[in-house]
């Protein structure tokens, strides 16, 4: 059953360019509010954690604005949450970026630096092809498709959470899913039509039109 007037809270932690994320959500006709208000985040039907920038700075802001508890509460309530790029990495337990930094702890796993390998420049910057391991309404749209990546760190997590991955010398999880918690390592707002499918699938999930997990 579809919800009435659903909206997405886009976490405003001051990092990076959030405009393109807002425009992509707007493009799939889902109302979105850029917010750091805990009450609004708890009331939202979906949450997007955008991300460009550094892990520690992002977590510092989330802690300063006292958003950790509201996000964790919303996660426990079953609110669909989508973390994008750095926002996906924040979903995990911790990162080794600038020393050990604790994350949101919504999915078990660690964020580590991409290894230096011949032929694989760091950061990974460009279009890479997705291998889908777990098919659902969200991953079907990216199956064998290229999406746009810009990152120097990647996630190490249990294979059961890795819904899709790309090969970049190592297996880089590109979509992770744990129940209502979703992460995209690539930028769906910069991945053309394929990326817009991801936003559409998430919007459908938010408005209860589709179940991903």
């Amino acid at each position: 059953m579809s919800k009435e007037n659903p909206f997405i809270a886009v976490i405003d932690y001051g990092a990076g360019n959030i405009r393109n994320v807002m425009k992509a959500i707007d493009y799939v006709d889902m109302p979105a509010k850029l917010t750091k208000d805990p009450a609004e985040i708890l009331a939202a039907d979906g949450i997007v954690i955008p991300g460009v920038g550094a892990y520690r700075a992002a977590m510092d802001k989330i802690n300063t604005y006292q958003l950790l508890i509201p996000i964790q509460k919303a996660a426990a309530n079953g609110t669909p949450i989508l973390g994008v790029c750095l926002g996906m990495q924040l979903l995990f337990d911790s990162s080794t970026e600038f020393g050990e930094t604790k994350g949101l702890g919504l999915i078990p796993g660690q964020v580590v630096t991409l290894p230096q390998k011949q032929g694989f420049k760091v950061p990974q910057m460009g279009w890479n092809q997705n291998n889908v391991a777990i098919e659902n309404a969200l991953t079907r749209g990216v199956k064998d498709e290229f999406t746009y990546f810009v990152h120097s760190y990647y996630v190490k997590t249990d294979v059961k959470y890795i819904a899709a991955s790309v090969d970049y010398g190592v297996q880089v999880p590109s979509i992770v899913i744990k129940n209502n918690i979703i992460g995209a390592q690539f930028h769906p707002e910069k991945s053309g039509e394929v990326g817009l499918r991801v936003w559409q699938a998430f919007a459908d999930m938010v408005s209860d039109k589709a179940v991903i997990a």
Binding site: G119, M125, G126, W127, N128, D167, Y168
Partner: peptide, 8 residues
């Protein structure tokens, strides 16, 4: 896999 060659 290597990244896709980009056409710009």
């Amino acid at each position: 896999m290597a990244l896709a060659k980009r056409i710009v």
